[in-house]
Design a protein around this nucleic acid. Structure first.
Lengths: 144, 144
DNA sequence: GTACAACTTCAAGTCGACTTTAAGTCAAGG
DNA sequence: CCTTGACTTAAAGTCGACTTGAAGTTGTAC
């Protein structure tokens, strides 16, 4: 497979594939002239990377988990820790979501008058709630 | 209040306060000599900013919501939209959390052999699950 | 045999929210 | 009078994950 096929099959940009290779997250199996060739397993590895990223791991951390062979070599405790982190994020997000919904329908003259809103403010101020990010996800046209 | 008092009362760094002022998110009420003076309302505004950030709004977006007076002037529809976004994030995070927990205890010889793990992989690969971020949160000593 | 699209490398740029650094200003205390 | 320390500014640096740009190479179709 040359890079464009990986791009089409995985939806991952060529520049990203090169970047991942540079970082040691994936490996090309060789070159045809100057062009990288990838094995089929790279697709699975890319899925694994996407999974890791979704779970909130950094690329460097993901690189650690990747056995030299490309098979995941994952510490189970690490997974549990991450799950706990997610759990805490989830709880915060739920509080935030409910607070937002309330604020949207609240009949108080101004948001500042609303007790629910003010409670939420307190939470945020005390840093109980923390950041998260939902990226815009650039969609690419997969060729005809 | 001079800046150090705001720092102590809010836990927000001085550099951040200056940055927020530069961005128009907060305003100092004047200067004593060269030093900024802040009114008490800045604390409430900072809480509001923290809240907005937690909900996933960018500083620029938050600046939009801030009436010139510092009182929130928020479009209710915007809140509902953000709540929906959060809802979708939450669902993804829950799937991820459960998947991680399963993977951690899964008895399959390797994660790749586990159907649950593979299902999760598929989700991640298809971009159904997206990023989020839980920052390390630098803790600062609030003076006595 | 040559044009061209698709690849290549390496360096630099982007985004967001800050932090850091360097150099300067100022009020108060010894 | 002069140091000290808390403030000030403007500019540059940081982090992570990429993307973009410029310039060079190549397989392939005509």
């Amino acid at each position: 497979m040359d890079i464009s096929e990986v791009v089409n099959r995985s939806g991952v940009a060529a520049s990203t594939l090169r970047y991942y290779e540079e970082k040691g997250l994936i490996h090309s199996v060789g070159r045809q002239g100057i062009r990288r060739q990838f094995g089929a397993s790279v697709l699975e590895q890319l899925a694994l990377i996407a999974l890791g990223r979704s779970a909130g791991f950094k690329l460097d951390e993901i690189a650690q988990m990747m056995g030299a062979d490309g098979r995941p070599q994952i510490d189970r405790q690490l997974l549990l820790n991450k799950a706990d982190e997610l759990d805490s994020s989830i709880r915060k997000l739920i509080a935030m979501r409910d607070g937002l919904r309330h604020a949207a329908v609240c009949s108080a003259p101004s948001h500042m008058e609303c007790p629910t809103f003010r409670r939420l403010l307190g939470l945020a101020a005390s840093g109980v709630i923390d950041g998260h990010k939902t990226k815009p996800r650039k969609r690419h046209r997969l060729g005809a």
